[in-house]
Design a protein around this nucleic acid. Structure first.
Length: 434
RNA sequence: GUGGCUGUAGCUCAGUUUGGUUAGAGCGCCAGGUUGUGGCCCUGGAGGUCGGGGGUUCAAGUCCCCUCAGUCACCCCA
């Protein structure tokens, strides 16, 4: 069997991947532009890292996490090096940090694809994209506050109505270890009563027991000790400061001491954003947390860090029609003449080129279409204006400029078109998200 | 990785239950409705390996098996 399964069939994108065609791609552009603009104002600069890394880098995301143990796209290159497609955004950024040792605090953002080998479904793909930030070099809780508030502002800026921020602290590693012991001690007498799934979790990551769906499991976990009671003094003070900062900035949140998150490197602050417009199954539109030991575990300086990632596909899904990015052409050029000498100016070729040099987005038909076909094309392109000319205009050295919204039309010299269009278009030429 | 549902034109879908002449609709696309003005309307046209392969049958879009893909749920996550 061939790679596509059927050799006689047209090719299609690999399972779990998809193309983003216009006009939908305009929604992506709008999201990325808004994000870039916003995080720049908070002092973040863009970082680009490779889509593949050494396998060991990717493993730093956690030996107990599904993302690493069963979903990594790994391969050996021609020289036998073990490489992997990035399954998440944080490890590569931290790798870049320990490799280049930039001055701290180092605040960067990224827009990049992640790859996970899992069964696709609505809002879940094998290649998905994340907008995210990472900041390394300080444990100051105000950084946590700013990171979270920034994500919050972003959701507001793109118009996501119902978004819920859930917040938790996992404490310091020793807190978590103590809690883990307590949890295991609590669960031990109930072991046999737990579901098969939960029994597996006991060995892998006991904190995940709280995610169990089985009613009996939930009942057992009701009486379990909570992580919150095990926070040490430092972690508690840090968490209190984060909450206070969020209160000061007016960012609403709910505490959720069962919020564990899927990656092993998190400690202290963790958070997740859920969209109320999505069903419970895939409603997480972003999340992140603090990972103070990660840089050191990669052989770098023991610098703390915190960041978040926002799933683009899922956010777009949650936004639905709330984000309406329209692809609008400024001007559509129409030639009214029946017979056109292709070697003589003016023509749609020369007129369009000139208007484009004047800064307008300009389209026209190809293949010498009829006047009617040219008009249909203008409508299809959602053009704001039509610039048309026939024998009379060519003789007079002018063109007709028609406002396609109002129907008004004026005859002007070609060099005056751009200023006329800009004046007439006025305020409604503003970018889609402002 | 496990289970359910679905696969007919570029798109959305009828037709499959009770196998039977050249497989339909809407939208989209192209052309025309007289020679220089759009969005509406009318007429015509192009476009289909009925996901793919195999089988049963005189006959398969329709029944059976396999396979690929999509989708939903579980798991997990963005």
């Amino acid at each position: 069997m061939s790679a596509t399964g059927q050799t006689s069939q047209p090719f299609r994108s690999p399972i779990g991947t998809r193309d983003v065609l216009p006009p939908e791609s305009a929604r992506w552009d709008a999201l990325v532009a808004t994000f870039s603009d916003l995080v720049s104002r908070w002092g973040f600069s863009r970082l680009l890292t490779p889509v593949f890394e050494h396998l060991e880098v990717v493993h730093r995301a956690g030996e107990s996490s599904d993302v690493v143990t069963k979903e990594v796209y790994r391969f050996a290159d021609r020289s036998g090096r073990e490489l992997a497609l990035r399954p998440e955004g944080t490890a590569p950024v931290v790798r870049s940090f320990v490799e280049h040792r930039p001055p701290t605090p180092w605040k960067v953002w990224y827009f990049a694809p992640n790859f996970r080998y899992e069964r696709p479904q609505k809002g879940r793909y094998r290649q998905h994209h994340q907008l995210g930030v990472e900041a390394l070099g300080t444990t100051d809780p105000w950084l946590d506050v700013e990171i979270i508030a920034m994500a919050w502002d972003f959701y507001q800026a793109v118009g996501l109505g119902g978004v819920e921020l859930r917040l938790n602290s996992l404490g310091d590693p020793e807190d978590r270890a103590a809690y883990r012991e307590a949890l295991l001690a609590y669960v031990a007498p109930h072991l046999g009563d737990l579901s098969e799934e939960s029994q597996r979790r006991v060995d892998i990551n006991p904190l995940r027991l709280f995610d169990a769906k089985a009613p009996n499991d939930r009942e057992i976990m009701q009486g379990a000790p909570t992580l919150n009671d095990f926070l040490g003094g430092d972690a508690r003070a840090h968490f209190d400061a984060v909450r206070s900062g969020l209160d000061q900035l007016g960012v609403p949140y709910t505490l959720d001491d069962r919020l564990v998150r899927g990656l092993d490197y998190y400690m202290r602050t963790t958070f997740e954003f859920a969209a109320t417009s999505l069903d419970a199954a895939q409603n997480a539109v972003g999340g992140g947390g603090r990972y103070d030991g990660l840089a050191a575990s990669m052989g770098g300086p023991d610098e703390p860090g915190i960041g978040f990632g926002i799933g683009v596909e899922r956010l777009l899904l949650a936004l639905g029609s709330a984000l309406d990015a329209r692809l609008r052409t400024d001007v559509f050029v129409i030639d009214l003449r029946r017979d056109v000498d292709p070697t003589a100016a003016p023509s749609v070729l020369t007129v369009s080129a000139e208007l484009r040099r004047d800064g307008l987005s300009v389209e026209h038909t190809y293949d010498r279409r009829s006047v009617k076909a040219q008009w249909k094309a203008a409508d299809r392109h959602d053009a704001r204006f039509a610039v048309l000319f026939g024998e009379r205009e060519v003789a007079a050295g002018t063109v007709q400029v028609k406002d396609l919204d109002s129907g008004e039309q004026a005859e002007v010299a070609l060099q005056d078109v751009a200023s006329l269009v800009r004046q007439a278009a006025g305020d409604d030429s503003a970018p889609p998200l402002d």
